[in-house]
Simulated assay, not measured.
Amino acid sequence: MSAIVNRNDDEVAPRRYRTLFLSDIHLGTRGCQAELLLDFFKHNESEELFLVGDIVDGWRLKSGWYWPQAHNDVVQKFLRKVRKGTRVVFVPGNHDEFARDFVGMEFGGVEVEDHVLHKTADGKTLLILHGDQFDVVVRHARWLAHLGDWAYDFAIWVNCWFNRARRQFGLPYWSFSQWAKLKVKNAVNFIGDFEKTLAAEARRRGVDGIVCGHIHHAAIREIDGVTYVNTGDFVESCTAIAEHFDGTLELIHWKLLESERAQVEANTEPQFLPGARVAAE
């Protein structure tokens, strides 16, 4: 079974999952991949949809309003899914922390919750939260977090123009910020510490695993007996987590060229957990 769907084939019926998890969409920013997200929803459906924080970037909207029609279309898509019977749950993050004032309420049928316990088809309990609660920088040095946010936006802008040129020469997408994140020692250490901290929180709460976002680094892995799942983001990597009807979790990458998708299908297996197949990172 492939994690890659041919996005240009309108004749193919949407792939159906038990649950989809998405985070860090950052509506209201120029780096948001709203059109690609609508394309994702065109080809993927689920009984439940969890929006795991930073769906709307309130930080950026405070400094200047940016809200094109495609961003509004994404919000309408969420509401349309509710009307068609999908359970949609929004767990706010630090960028849309204003929504935490409305925890326990519904808007157009979209539930707003601080955190959620989700039972998978194979009986495992997953704690769902954004993850910023465990980021010391966000909690105790807000000005530094905003500085990092500005630097990330600049990197996205550079990537946008750089990759336009690469695609003209038939070259695949390459992310400077993702590369730097995995090469800079402090960033690598931060990711590792974040993952261990979230896994420890799941273990403290007596659940089988945790689903989060926040650090824009998608992963499915076992950490000391706990399933750690990070949805990544839908700005650069454009990733999502899907739960199949047998409880298997799959990491889906949606930002690929046709040639890249064919290569992935031919040479790799999708990342699965828990289940028979687990792809090494």
Results as ranks from 00 to 15, higher is better:
Val5Phe: 02
Arg204Cys: 02
Arg18Asn: 13
Thr227Phe: 06
Gly131His: 03
Asp208Leu: 09
Arg18Ile: 03
Tyr17Thr: 07
His216Cys: 06
Gly123Ala: 05
Glu269Asn: 15
Glu260Ser: 04
Pro274His: 08
Phe78Ile: 10
His26Asp: 06
Glu111Lys: 14
Ala99Val: 08
Asn159Tyr: 07
Ile156Asn: 15
Asn163Thr: 00
Asn6Ile: 07
Leu256Gly: 01
Glu260Cys: 03
Asn6Glu: 12
His26Glu: 10
Gly148Gln: 07
Asn230His: 04
Arg204Glu: 11
Val226His: 08
Gly232Asn: 06
Ser237Glu: 05
Thr125Asp: 02
Val110Ser: 02
Val116His: 02
Ala141Ser: 14
Gly213Gln: 05
His140Arg: 14
Val136Gly: 09
Leu20Gly: 03
Asp246Ala: 05
Phe190Thr: 01
Pro270Arg: 15
Asp39Leu: 12
Phe90Tyr: 14
Gly247Ser: 02
His214Asp: 05
Ala13Lys: 11
Tyr66Ile: 00
Asn6Lys: 11
Gln168Gly: 07
Val91Tyr: 00
Asn186Gly: 11
His115Pro: 01
Gly104Trp: 03
Trp65Met: 05
Gly93Pro: 02
Asp96His: 09
Val235Ile: 15
Arg18Met: 07
Leu257Thr: 02
His216Asn: 04
Trp179Cys: 14
Gly131Gln: 02
Leu249His: 05
Gly148Arg: 07
His130Glu: 05
Glu265His: 05
Arg83Thr: 09
Ala187Gly: 09
Gly28Tyr: 13
Gly93Arg: 06
Trp150Phe: 15
Val52Asp: 00
Met1Asn: 15
Asp149Tyr: 07
Lys77Arg: 15
